[in-house]
Computed example of a mutant assay.
Amino acid sequence: MPKQPNLTLIVDELNQAANQIDEQQLEQLTDAISKAGRVFVAGAGRSGLMMRAFAMRLMHLGLDVYVVGETVTRSLSKDDLLLIGSGSGETKSLIPMAEKAHSLEAKVGALTLSETSTIGGLADIVVRLPGAPKDQAGDTASTIQPMGSLFEQILLLLCDTIILRLMAREELSGKAMYGNHANLE
């Protein structure tokens, strides 16, 4: 079977990106999720889809988790965590959410390319992910992929890494988590 050069290049980019994640930032976010009363996730576009996938896995762990904007999402309070995934950290629809969370004294976490972005500046916890801004991706040496693909992929993988850390802390197996899997499908 012939090699898939583009797939190999993408996997290489993901390996390079994974090696750039700050372990201390990742541990700080994992701790905040563990200690939160409830976890609320938000993101827009494809980043939003990655955050929704993360919410599902958090629910499988048994956490009280909500996707901002869904009709069944509860109100945010002081002991909660709002976790925002935004490559630019400047997504106009997400900035007011971070501001509102602060006004309610909830914690804000950001998964972003830029710690100095508006959302990064509003966040109590920032995990900086490597990648290129949408308008530069594919045109720079940091990625061959279009738009925000590298950010979105590493975002999903980072979220799965957090799930594995939380599973280890709670001594949960995938089999135990399956008990929270949807059964009306």
Rank of each mutant, 00 (worst) to 15 (best):
Gly85Leu: 00
Leu158Phe: 12
Ile84Lys: 06
Gln20Met: 13
Phe151Val: 04
Gln24Pro: 05
Val41Leu: 02
Gly148Ser: 12
Glu171Asp: 14
Ser149Asn: 04
Ile95Tyr: 01
Gln25Met: 15
Leu29Tyr: 05
Leu158Thr: 02
Gly179Arg: 12
Val68Pro: 05
His181Asp: 10
Glu152Pro: 07
Lys92Met: 15
Ala98Glu: 02
Glu152Met: 15
Met167Ala: 08
Gly48Asp: 00
Pro133Trp: 09
Leu156Met: 13
Ser173Phe: 13
Arg128Leu: 08
Leu82Ile: 01
Leu129Ile: 03
Ala182Thr: 06
Gln153Ala: 15
Gly85His: 01
Val126Leu: 03
Glu27Arg: 15
Ala106Pro: 04
Gly62Val: 05
Glu99Ser: 07
Asn180Phe: 08
Asp139Asn: 12
Glu171Leu: 15
Phe151Cys: 07
Pro133His: 11
Val65Trp: 01
Thr30Asp: 11
Arg165Thr: 03
Leu184Ala: 10
Ala17Lys: 04
Lys3Thr: 08
Gln24Met: 13
Glu13Ala: 01
Leu157Ala: 10
Glu13Trp: 00
Gly109Met: 05
Glu115Val: 02
Ser114Gly: 07
Glu99Met: 11
Ala141His: 14
Leu49Gln: 10
Ile21Ser: 03
Leu158Gln: 03
Lys35Gly: 10
Gly87Trp: 03
Lys175Cys: 15
Leu164Asp: 14
Gln28Glu: 09
Thr143Gly: 06
Val127Arg: 06
Gly62Pro: 00
Asp135Asn: 09
Leu157Cys: 13
Pro146Thr: 07
Thr140Gly: 12
Lys92Ile: 14
Ile95Val: 11
Asp22Met: 14
Ile84Asn: 03
Ser75Leu: 15
Gly62Leu: 01
Leu26Phe: 09
Gly89Gln: 03
Leu94Val: 08
Pro5Gln: 09
Val72Tyr: 14
Val68Trp: 04
Gly87Ala: 08
Met51Ser: 00
Leu166Ile: 08
Val11Met: 10
Gly37Ile: 06
Asn183Glu: 13
Arg46Asn: 04
Leu113Val: 03
Ala53Glu: 06
Glu171Ile: 09
Val67Phe: 02
Arg52Gln: 03
Leu155Ile: 10
Asp64Trp: 06
Asp79Trp: 12
His181Tyr: 02
Lys35Asn: 15
Thr116Gly: 13
Ala141Thr: 13
Asp160Gly: 09
Ser86Cys: 10
Ser142Phe: 12
Pro133Lys: 11
Ser173Thr: 09
Asp64Arg: 11
Thr30Ile: 12
Gly179Trp: 13
Asp31Tyr: 13
Ala17Pro: 07
Thr161Ala: 10
Val127Glu: 00
Val11His: 14
